[in-house]
Design a protein around this nucleic acid. Structure first.
Lengths: 109, 109
DNA sequence: GAATTAGTTTCGATATGCGTTAAATATTGC
DNA sequence: GCAATATTTAACGCATATCGAAACTAATTC
């Protein structure tokens, strides 16, 4: 059922990958740009980008002007799914809170 | 800075722990109840619950009627923080989408 | 107070994840 | 064509996570 969610969470669990997502949230970036920003070696960065790609969080594209370069950009679905999962939880918290609130209010009279 | 977020995500990255959170979302539960529901041995469950406790996602309490039993319940803050982080991203998606939309609309004339 | 129950901790084994170095692929520039 | 650039893949070592089994703690029951 929520197999995809597990892979999303696993991908985001690594601090370097989460920072990568933070950077890609601003705009698409080149692999080398990300490596430098995170202080990672190119191989290490490449592996993280592969993990993010396999989780569906990012996608890769080659720019026209230089086919050596690979540009990564975020894909919205995984984050949207995660958000949806959290919102279910949030709804429940709201339920609990409003139930508590109602109980307190009745008691206050 | 977002050290707490990393620990939350690391805790949720394990499928058994995420399912545990799903179960605790409904209501607080005993350790043994969770172990049985997940098909985990008591030691395995205990270790997962410790990880969840250390991440701040759950808290433990002893019920009055039997001090051997340990009841676990969700704590809202970590999920709220995660939700807040996702909402920042969401805002950006909205920006990107509306920018794209505006671009398309102008072009359509 | 002996046996049972609920749960945790420890220990040893296996597996998985991450980083580094070195080599490989592909593309660009001269 | 040859050197340089951008990035990935491969091979290895190290740290960490997880599980099962056994031992342990503490509370309950009879």
């Amino acid at each position: 059922m929520s197999e995809a969610l597990d892979r999303t969470l696993a991908a985001l669990a690594d601090p370097h990958r989460r920072r990568t997502v933070d950077l890609l949230r601003e705009r698409p970036r080149r692999a080398g740009e990300l490596a430098e920003a995170l202080g990672l070696s190119p191989p290490a960065m490449s592996r993280h980008l592969r993990a993010l790609r396999q989780s569906g969080l990012v996608e890769e594209s080659h720019p026209e002007f230089d086919a050596r370069v690979r540009v990564y950009r975020l894909r919205p679905e995984p984050m949207a799914r995660l958000k949806a999962w959290l919102d279910v939880a949030e709804d429940h918290w709201v339920d609990q809170l409003s139930a508590l609130k109602a109980h307190v209010e009745v008691k206050a009279r």
